[in-house]
Design a binder for these strands. Structure first.
Lengths: 360, 360
DNA sequence: GGCGGCTGTTGACACGATTTAATGGACCTG
DNA sequence: CAGGTCCATTAAATCGTGTCAACAGCCGCC
């Protein structure tokens, strides 16, 4: 034992440096003249402790500026009070609206939100899920990259429940999910264009493996069939590898290829960013919507209303989506009789200036 | 004592239900035939343990699918391995780019990011900071609401260091800060407009108490003085209460008030969202930039390049800002000889189509 | 062969909060 | 007054990890 080995626990001499030994529940107990257990009761079940005692403890808490230590707390309980939010791309406005919804509900429930960004990479997603397991997170709201089902099931086996957001299912009945009806969205956009007289429509899709893209396309084709058109002739598909404005801009070339005769009257993009990119690409070629091409987007991000002409788009209740997901997670955490639920929201077509009747 | 009271700790019967007792460092130790301390060494200082032992332990870890418990970890160490990121508005693209930078560096360093959104409310910020204190967060990157200095100092007294982002100082030499030189940004925008011949410029500001707004305005006035103009005559200020597109749109009325004689030739907005709102408001009145009014924004968010005409704006290195802030925080956490630093980035004017020479 | 030095491993405790069974005291009742 | 009930409080055990002094075993050296 060195000379200073049993460091003086309760010395007050540290007021000189700014670094004070953190005050714990024991210090509070000592100051209030009660046992640590009573302090814990004051914090967690105040009704069990007599009024005068409670007041004394509360005074001690204030005097010492006591802040409880959540490590100790969650070590004992086996659960931490934070929930994960795993998104595919923090910078996408769709996700940030969702995040706001999740955050609001989590905050109301006193839970901290751990933000994880997979950037659409499976390896990063895997790291993120492991982190949640290590933290013994109370739960997670997850927008997984495609085909990473096994990792999710692993996480649940580790005792961390999740709610799937904006993705269908992960096979079995393994958890709640919240999404918007993509087929209905595609259908609404399709009907709108068909009603305007368009018979040649290009669908600007993302990567082939994304379920949303395929389903929205299916809805679009439904609309063509409804109108008595041959969907294979009426709908042409162009794929991009990323869902951003740049890809949309580059795709304009291909959309317009084939000369005026084969040129589509309308393009339906699987994402507003793509659509805005298309609008920009048109502008650069001296063309514009809707005169030369009707353009429809998807999501209704804030900027869709700001461009000129305003972007016609399929709105998703993004904020509500986030709130609902977090609420389902809370239900799974708190309700003993929780049953997994598949919540489906209805999208809504917002008609602005970027679409118009066929002119040729 | 009920019949089942001392639950069987090591029974293997739980393979039926999906809920297994979480496996801890002790189980690993037992399986590998070593002491828990050795397992801990394998995890934290592998070089101290002999190769064969290490391999045996690593095998046990894999076999049991052991996941370490960060509550126990950080209870012991007094520090958790998460850092907070407090932003004013998650949905603002400026913040999300910053967040991406912070997130990337934090992830590299193996730290988890706790996302906190003050929504510009002091009460929410206070709750957030308390949460970080409770978590014994390793540190935080903070964009505080104005005038909440005391809470920040309190957090540091609680042992949680922070880096200030996009805000000057908090009085004394209390921590690092990262920001962009707002005066230089205002100056660059101002010079650009003055060089185009504009002599009546409106500054569209946010709330009066925001330091950024005041400093950018000062830069703009500097430019006027440089050009031999009386800044009080040349620059008019209009305030909005929120920094969003809606406010910009509403402000158009006021900007144009006073008839063509007194109408300004240019408007410099303290934020791209405001500027985009102005562009929209102009469009709705049948006017447009730059023919009727030159418009300059600030931030260079992704959408600034997508509108037509493209928005001339003062670009901030958002992603780099986030990275730098997190790096300074890491330095404060790891380097014994850390000195607080004030990092200032240079903004850059990006000229697009929304500004043009004076025409009247 | 005894001794010092070195390496690898162990055992026990500390971290801070929660929980449970036990305790003490006040009050009531027959 | 003995016995019982109820309430407020306490002491001790516990959660999973990290740390550190102590120790065992081994090698080499004189």
């Amino acid at each position: 034992m060195g000379p200073q080995s049993p460091r003086p626990r309760s010395s007050a001499l540290s007021s000189l440096e700014g670094v004070r030994r953190p005050v714990g529940i024991n210090d509070v107990a000592a100051r209030a003249g009660v046992s640590p257990g009573t302090v814990s009761n004051v914090l967690n079940r105040p009704e069990r402790v007599a009024e005068p005692t409670r007041l004394r403890v509360e005074a001690a808490i204030r005097d010492l500026d006591y802040v409880r230590n959540s490590s100790g707390r969650s070590l004992r309980s086996g659960r931490s009070d934070s929930v994960g939010l795993l998104v595919l791309d923090i910078t996408n406005p769709f996700f940030t609206e969702v995040a706001r919804g999740v955050e609001d509900v989590a905050t109301e429930a006193g839970l901290a939100l751990v933000l994880l960004n997979s950037a659409e990479q499976q390896s990063r997603q895997q790291r993120s899920l492991r982190l949640l397991a290590e933290q013994r997170a109370a739960g997670a709201v997850v927008m997984p990259v495609d085909g990473a089902t096994a990792d999710l099931l692993w996480l649940r086996r580790q005792g961390v429940p999740w709610v799937l957001l904006d993705r269908g299912d992960v096979g079995a009945d393994t958890g709640c999910s919240v999404a918007v009806d993509n087929r209905a969205g595609g259908l609404a956009a399709g009907r709108h264009l068909v009603n305007l007289g368009h018979e040649r429509i290009t669908f600007l899709s993302g990567p082939a493996e994304m379920e949303q893209c395929r389903t929205r396309l299916a809805g679009l084709r439904d609309a063509a069939v409804e109108a008595g058109l041959d969907p294979d002739a009426a709908v042409r598909v162009i794929r991009t590898d990323r869902l951003n404005a740049e890809s949309g801009e580059k795709a304009v070339e291909e959309i317009l290829a084939g000369g005026p005769r084969r040129r589509p009257g309308a393009v339906f993009c699987t994402n507003d960013q793509l659509a805005l990119g298309v609008l920009k690409g048109l502008g650069e070629r001296g063309l514009n919507a809707p005169a030369d091409l009707s353009v429809v987007g998807y999501d209704d991000v804030g900027f869709a209303a700001l461009v000129h002409p305003g972007l016609t788009t399929v709105a998703q209740p993004k904020y509500e989506l986030g709130r609902a997901a977090m609420r389902l997670l809370l239900s799974e955490l708190n309700d003993a009789d929780h049953r997994h639920e598949r919540l489906r929201f209805a999208p809504e077509l917002v008609v602005r200036g970027s679409t118009a009747a066929r002119r040729d």
